[in-house]
Amino acid sequence: MKRTFLALAALTVSAGAMAQSSVTVFGVADVSVAHISTSTKSVSGLANGGNSSSRLGFRGVEDLGGGLKAGFWLEGSLSVDDGTASGFKFDRRSTVSLTGNFGEVRLGRDKTPAYQNLETFHAFGDTGMGAISGHNLITSAGGTAEGSNPKRVSNGISYLLPKLGGVYGQVTHSFGEQSGNNSLASNTGLRLGYANGPVNVAAAYEISRGGTAAAGVDYKTFNIGASYDFGVLTPMLLLASERGNDKRVDLYSVGVKMPLGAGELRAAYTWYKDKKQSDADSQRLALGYGYKLSKRTEIYAAVARMSNDDKASRKLGSSLSPTPVVGKSMTGYEIGLRHNF
């Protein structure tokens, strides 16, 4: 009888633990048929992530009681077009967190606060032909961990505000972990926003430390974005600027999303303005449509053109896109399929 009681108690405790914990496998499989042409050459083939970046991830949460929860998130990139899997790593996100009434403390590799505005307030986000391509506007940012305004940072600690009406925010610091100089290759960012009903607006500021231990260089990023859902359409506006090492590049973007049939029409215009060099600007116009076959599956199409000034060579956001010859423009289109699981 005693053994039976102990066995039942063990099963009860185990069932209770399972009820308070959860682990989810998730991901995105996205691939498109794409074509890109310039005045000198053209490229055709399959492109990875034309609508959303392909990925595979695992996330989980455990209820610790008293409103406290522990969680983890491991997410890595996939290449659906060629099935690349060797050397798979959790390069998109690898975090462990503690959440409560105070908000959330998150440790590990994650998106930077400033990059999240680029994704949020652009009709195409940062994937495919129409991608905003708004990070690391200053090229050759030597000494930084991943550029003048990276998408993600490693060795980071973040604090996220709890729910405060419509107010949301995040502050992140990543340690450079350089021998003898912990500030080198470090990154500090702040984002504060307000989302309530149809309105969403947010601003972000970030500093990436580059250069050398003897002569450091700060690359500073600022952006502000806004959108308003009128129901029949959602206009979006984004302004961004990067400065450092006697360089400055500004970005101006306007876009719109509009429900159409069983899908969504997307359009965006983006202007990249080099403030330190003449004839080095670029302009991109993109138009696309996504048709929902179900809640998890979408077929989409997009066309975009990047017009470069005489000293510019910016490319389109597609994974298939080559870097054009300086001063040459390019046009691309794609038709693809995205499935979430």
Rank of each mutant, 00 (worst) to 15 (best):
I299W: 10
L316V: 00
K311N: 10
R305H: 15
P324M: 13
K295E: 12
L320C: 00
D309L: 13
A301F: 01
R314K: 15
I299M: 15
R314E: 08
K311A: 15
L316F: 11
N308M: 04
A312W: 04
K295N: 14
K315C: 04
I299S: 11
P324D: 07
T297R: 01
D310V: 15
P324E: 08
E298D: 13
Y300F: 11
R296D: 13
R305W: 12
L316D: 01
S318K: 05
P324F: 09
T323L: 09
L293T: 02
K311D: 09
L293V: 06
K311E: 10
K315W: 02
I299H: 11
T323V: 14
L293C: 05
V303S: 02
I299A: 15
A312L: 14
S321M: 11
V303W: 03
M306Q: 13
R314L: 13
S318V: 13
A304Q: 04
S318T: 12
Y300N: 02
N308Y: 14
A304I: 10
Y300Q: 00
K295T: 13
D309S: 15
D310G: 07
M306E: 04
S313Q: 12
T297D: 00
R305L: 07
L320Q: 01
K295M: 07
G317F: 14
T323E: 10
D310M: 09
P322V: 05
S321N: 14
A312H: 04
S313R: 09
A304M: 09
A304N: 07
S294H: 10
T323I: 13
A301P: 00
S307W: 03
L316W: 00
D309V: 12
A301R: 00
A304S: 09
S313K: 11
S321A: 15
A301K: 00
S313V: 03
S313Y: 01
V303I: 15
S319L: 10
V303Y: 06
G317S: 09
R305G: 14
T297E: 01
P322Q: 04
T323G: 15
A301T: 11
K315M: 05
S318M: 06
V303N: 07
P324R: 08
K311T: 12
L316C: 02
E298Q: 07
Y300R: 00
G317L: 07
I299Q: 06
S321V: 12
K311Y: 09
K315S: 14
